[in-house]
């Protein structure tokens, strides 16, 4: 039974709560670095290492870090691991370091890592947190591959950096640009929706305040201004007239 629970923690991040395709977190690196399989996989691995390490450390320190200053503490822990990964890549794999560029440093503010710290690692023991980090990391890598493959194949006519001659005259260069990234990402999520539709649908948390690391602050702010309009509007599959949607938005913020 205990073994099943551990397995489910690991597997949850891969499909059921896939960070990129279901939770819609960490969209920036998903679009920016998923232009080729090589950069997608290296980005995924770098983020997974940071995710597992920071989950472990945050989980170990969960009883020591005061609740009120936890977000800055988490950011410092994450930044430390990102710096370590960056230095290691610079020293041993300079080609990958060059390829990822500023996006490597931006792992610090990747919503997935802060989100998992906030949602999971601060409430759970070390082993579970490490598994959660690993599962989410693998889910992240798989999602990046799914987005990167069509972009590299159709956009640049390459697979894993190897040019395919027969694609020379039929490639669609726009898919390799950020615009193509948005497009393929949208299509992939739509396909996921279609596939999960028959199984009763996955509970989708799109742009949800709950999955956002700043949820607590945002809610407080939302009370004052009604800014934090939850996912109810976006996630709902029904059409709403604009003014009704606006009212709901204010309600969502106040709730």
């Amino acid at each position: 039974m205990a073994k099943n629970k551990k397995l489910s923690i690991l597997l949850r991040g891969i499909i059921e709560e896939n960070p990129v395709l279901i939770l819609v977190l960490g969209t920036c690196p998903s679009i920016a670095t998923a232009t080729s399989l090589q950069s997608a996989v290296s980005m995924g691995i770098a983020a997974t290492i940071v995710l597992v390490c920071s989950n472990v450390v945050i989980s170990l320190l969960r009883k020591i870090i005061p609740d009120t200053v936890r977000i800055p503490c988490y950011i410092v822990i994450i930044a430390t691991f990102v710096t370590a990964v960056q230095l290691l890549l610079q020293a041993f794999l300079p080609a990958i370091y060059e390829m990822l560029g500023v996006y490597l440093a931006l792992i610090v503010v990747n919503c997935i890592i802060l989100g998992r710290a906030e949602m999971f690692a601060r409430k759970n023991p070390v082993g579970d947190s490490a598994l959660d980090g690993l599962g989410m990391g693998i889910g992240f890598i798989l999602a990046l591959i799914v987005i990167a493959f069509p972009r590299e194949f159709l956009g640049s006519g390459k697979i894993w950096g190897i040019t395919l001659d027969f694609m020379e005259n039929v490639k669609i260069p726009v898919l390799a640009t950020p615009a193509g990234g948005f497009f393929i990402y949208g299509i992939v999520i739509a396909v996921m929706n279609k596939l999960t539709e028959k199984k009763g649908g996955v509970k989708r948390k799109s742009f949800d305040c709950e999955s956002c690391p700043s949820a607590a602050i945002c809610k407080k702010a939302g009370k004052a201004e009604g800014t934090c309009q939850g996912a109810e509007n976006t996630a709902s599959t029904q059409e709403q007239p604009t003014n009704a949607a606006n009212e709901d938005g204010v309600k969502g913020g106040n709730a």
């Binding site: 948005f182 497009f183 949208g186 999520i189 739509a190 929706n193 989708r204 976006t234």
Partner: peptide
């Protein structure tokens, strides 16, 4: 928001595709 889009495109996917067109 007021346009009828296919059911599986509702929400996130159609937003991303609109973003793609703005990016182009």
């Amino acid at each position: 928001e007021n346009c009828p889009s296919p059911k599986c495109f509702k929400g996130v996917p159609i937003t991303l595709i609109a973003a793609s067109i703005v990016a182009i």
